[in-house]
Design a binder for these strands. Structure first.
Length: 893
DNA sequence: CCTCGAACGTA
DNA sequence: CGTACGTTCGAGGG
């Protein structure tokens, strides 16, 4: 192995790589406005940037062929003679590429009479002699002969140029069965059609390698040519001069007279300003970003990066070498570690195909590696520790807990998931993974296996012990950065929830494929019929899913008045179409709306159908750190946005069923949680009374607002008040209210005025939230969850007002999220504690869905109702509505 | 190939 | 000119 401290010389065959990029990337999509093709340049530079980032060469050069003629063409004039004319689209790119490279401060080499590969050979030879580690990048197989202990070849695979295969001596032997220096002999025998160099007929790689094994080298083979039997033997004798000639031509020249010294190839920092004009001309925006990132280590010049709380220039401690132990030794290690770290040990599980195959355990100074397989008695101490309440720190624990459960391993004692903790501190999803956290809270970097999979260097990547070690050290740093309230939310709300979510995801929910398939077909037929009618109305076929094409139809062809402006034109959304239908009735509009409905539903149905797993169930993933307010999200697929408002939509919910071993689904939802939270937070006596009266909320509020008896509140009054109440929590304006209720501005303003007159504390509270947040810089939920609002004092009005509305909403939405999260952990606990088989499956913000076992219905209802209603003690009661049925739809109430 | 915006489903 | 999400599609740029 080569010494990592050596300087690294990277030499790239510019021509062959650019040429590969040219064919790998579509030319017509890489063309600037003025018609310059850039695919080869782009592909090449993209690959080069990846190489620079990953290999960090100390010295660097890119070699090009000077022309198509070289000493080889003089030697054998048919050499490369079968190659067609180089495409002009490619030719024109080479000088520009060279210009760009020079602007980047990279030495470009070319030499009359030689090919780029000869320059690679020469530099590799010189570099090795001067004590460099050499990396060559070329798409020409002849460069394989240059590989040795200090010279590694990176060779593009068939996919293109972004993935390079690393050939060191071992890799060459593995791939070809011969040593690198023998490769030219093989190539000589086999020939190279692309260079117009025929070899020995019927001799391929296998035969050539076999002969080399028998006779050592090409000379040996030719000496013994007479001994080789059969047609191939005869062919060898007949065409031996081919092999001799090929061998002569494919020997790379290792002493090209180059008037450049290696020292001069030292990598210089890239001057961003020098390359900017060229990149702008080539319209390389993302490449410019990548270079900027490479040079500055920052995302971009524009986004002002927050200053990390930890200085990054102190020396980072080295990860300790992982111990390995089994049996008594393992038990002793764990015992000592547990005693040494009362706050918890770091744990990181290695997962393959959803199962545990290994683990790393760590204190802040020591690590242990465990290779886990089921049924190994000597690992019992590890399993016992996992199952115990001994405190554990696991970053991004949910997925690992799932693997544990799949592998039949019991787990307890999760005290900190630094990822969740980090999110509580900065809920706007700044730190998305362990490595982000390590950078922010420890000021270090997690050594990574190459994310772009370009030549992964395994010895550098962090394994489970290192990751566990980072977690162990991260936890105290993250906890120290949390407020006391936030730490409480972590301990009381979030950590207990992690295993619950893992369990829910594993359970999944049964979905009836046949029902979905039937729905899909009928929706598809309806969509097709509606589309046909719509086309008939306008006399042509357009893509009804394309807002752009719709704009042509509506505003140009049908001459309708322009709707709300969007960035790309005019809105064609449902409300805009409804407005048009009012002003300019046209059958096309109705058909379009119905078509949208049908295709949207079908899309949902098809997506659901596709995500039904082999067990007949859909296993969504919950994003615990999904929303800044504290809510969860659901994805793959999203089960939190299954239609309910329309009849057709509800038919989708009919497809959600209880499993075979269960008797029914049970849904439990909080009624009007957000209004109840508002009542609690504002302390408004009127609102509190409304909830304590146990009467229909909107009727009660309507009676107050309109000054009538509750019995005299008309449906219209109730609707208005309901919209108003719900809008409050979102920072609704009179304008928005008037639009939603389709009433005029004056009426909306009056409604708001009347409302606030009766419920003044609500208005005061909402105002106070924003004012307080402007001072503090954050809002807080009932339970202490914080959300920062940096834009509240922004001079930009749009930004500021957006932040104000979000701030107003945050404690309400966030407190509701806290409530149901608490209720979930309690419910899970209580169901298990009561020894019931019934189990929680889904969460949809204010609703929980359970699968109930035969005979457990009453008990489950009791437990769920109790856990949800008493998740917190508010100034108003929490009302829980329960429904049961064979399907999700039936279970609705 | 990737990113963006529009549209739309839920609470 | 109402918050919070995730998904899908078409379009556009690289």
């Amino acid at each position: 192995m080569s010494d990592p401290m050596k300087p690294t010389l990277l030499v790239v065959d510019g021509h062959s790589l650019a040429f590969r990029a040219f064919y790998a990337l579509p030319v017509d999509s890489f063309t600037t406005r003025d018609g310059q093709h850039t695919n080869a340049i782009h592909g090449f530079l993209s690959m080069l940037l990846l190489l620079l980032a990953n290999e960090k060469p100390t010295h660097l050069a890119v070699a090009f062929d000077k022309s198509r003629v070289s000493f080889r063409t003089r030697e054998y004039e048919e050499y490369k003679g079968n190659r067609g004319e180089t495409p002009v689209e490619f030719k024109g790119q080479v000088p520009i590429l060279q210009e760009a490279l020079q602007a980047m401060g990279i030495t470009v080499l070319e030499k009359d009479d030689y090919e780029a590969d000869d320059l690679l050979a020469t530099l590799a030879t010189r570099g090795e002699a001067s004590g460099y580690r050499v990396l060559l990048v070329s798409g020409d197989r002849d460069t394989i002969q240059l590989v040795d202990d200090e010279v590694t070849l990176l060779y593009p695979n068939s996919q293109g140029v972004s993935q390079l295969k690393r050939y060191d001596t071992a890799a060459v032997i593995e791939r070809y069965g011969i040593r690198p220096e023998q490769y030219p002999d093989v190539a000589a025998l086999v020939g190279e059609t692309s260079d117009n160099l025929p070899g020995i007929p019927k001799v391929g790689e296998k035969t050539a390698v076999k002969w080399l094994g028998l006779y050592g080298d090409l000379d040996g083979i030719l000496e013994h040519a007479d001994e080789i039997k059969g047609v191939v033997g005869q062919n060898l004798r007949d065409h031996r001069e081919h092999a001799v000639r090929n061998r002569k031509l494919n020997r790379l020249v290792r002493d090209v007279p180059l008037d450049v010294e290696l020292d001069a190839l030292e990598s210089k920092p890239i001057d961003l300003e020098a390359i900017r004009p060229i990149f702008e001309r080539l319209e390389f925006r993302t490449l410019m970003e990548r270079i900027t990132k490479l040079v500055t280590g920052e995302a971009s010049a524009a986004a002002a990066a927050p200053v990390p709380p930890v200085a990054t220039d102190q020396p980072a401690p080295e990860a300790p070498k992982a111990a390995r132990a089994v049996g008594d030794e393992l038990a002793a290690w764990l015992e000592r570690a547990v005693a040494a770290e009362p706050a918890g040990l770091g744990l990181h599980l290695e997962v393959l195909d959803g199962r545990v195959i290994g683990a790393g355990v760590a204190t802040r100074t020591e690590t242990l590696e465990v290779q886990w397989q089921p049924g190994r008695a000597e690992l019992a101490p590890f399993e016992a520790w996992l199952a115990s309440a001994a405190p554990k720190i696991v970053t991004d624990a949910k997925g690992q807990l799932k693997a544990l459960q799949r592998s039949g391993l019991a787990f307890d004692g999760l005290v900190v998931d630094p990822l969740v903790a980090g999110w509580l501190i900065r809920p706007n999803l700044q730190e998305k993974n362990l490595s982000d956290l390590v950078e922010r809270y420890l000021g270090e970097r997690v050594p990574e296996g190459d994310p772009a999979q370009l030549v992964p260097a395994e010895d550098e990547a962090s394994g489970p012990p290192e990751l566990a070690w980072f977690s162990a050290r991260l936890a105290p740093a993250v906890l120290a950065a949390m407020s006391e309230g936030t730490r409480r939310v972590l301990a009381d709300v979030e950590m207990p929830l992690v295993p619950v979510l893992a369990a829910m995801e594993l359970r999944g929910v049964t979905v009836d494929h046949a029902q979905l398939a039937e729905l899909s077909t009928s929706l598809g037929e309806r969509a097709a019929a509606l589309a046909a009618s719509a086309y008939a109305e306008i006399g042509r076929e357009v893509n009804l899913g394309s807002p752009k094409q719709l704009q042509e139809v509506l505003f140009d062809q049908l001459g309708m008045p322009k709707t709300r402006a969007t960035k790309t034109g005019y809105s064609t959304d449902a409300s805009a179409l409804a407005d048009l239908q009012d002003s300019n009735p046209h059958p096309f509009l109705g058909l379009l709306l119905e078509h949208r409905d049908a295709t949207k539903l079908r899309q949902i149905v098809d997506a659901l159908d596709k995500s039904i797993a082999a067990d007949g169930r859909i296993h969504t993933s919950y994003g615990q750190i999904g929303a800044a307010t504290g809510r969860m999200s659901s994805n793959d697929p999203n089960l939190q946005n299954i239609p309910i408002r329309t009849e057709e939509g509800r038919r989708i919910r009919e497809a959600f069923r209880h499993g075979e071993d269960f008797a029914e689904l049970l849904t439990a939802d909080y009624s009007q949680v957000e209004m109840r939270i508002m009542a609690h937070l504002s302390g408004d006596p009127g609102l509190i009374e409304a909830f304590n009266a146990g009467e229909d909320l909107h009727r009660f509020v309507g009676a107050r607002v309109f000054g009538v008896e509750p019995a005299d509140v008309s449906p219209l009054m109730r609707t208005k008040v309901k919209a108003m109440s719900y809008g409050l929590a979102y920072g609704l304006s009179a304008f928005g209210l008037s639009k939603q209720l389709r009433i005029d501005r004056a009426e909306a303003t009056q409604l708001m005025k009347d409302y606030f007159e009766r419920f003044g504390a609500v208005r005061d509270y909402l105002r106070g939230v924003v004012e307080q947040a402007k001072v503090d810089g954050y809002t807080e939920t009932i339970f202490g969850r914080r959300r920062p609002f940096p834009d509240l004092n922004s001079p930009n009005r749009v930004l500021r007002e957006n932040a104000e509305r979000a701030a107003l909403n945050s404690p309400i939405q966030g407190s509701a999220a806290d409530l149901i999260k608490l209720a979930m952990s309690r419910t899970e606990q209580a169901l298990a504690g009561a020894g019931l088989r019934s189990r929680m499956l889904l969460q949809v913000h204010d609703e929980l869905i359970f699968e109930v076992a035969e005979g457990e219905s009453e008990q489950v209802e009791q437990i769920v109702r109790d856990a949800m209603a008493h998740a917190a003690d508010l100034l108003v009661p929490l009302d829980v509505q329960i429904g049961r049925g064979a399907s999700w739809d039936d279970a609705a109430h």
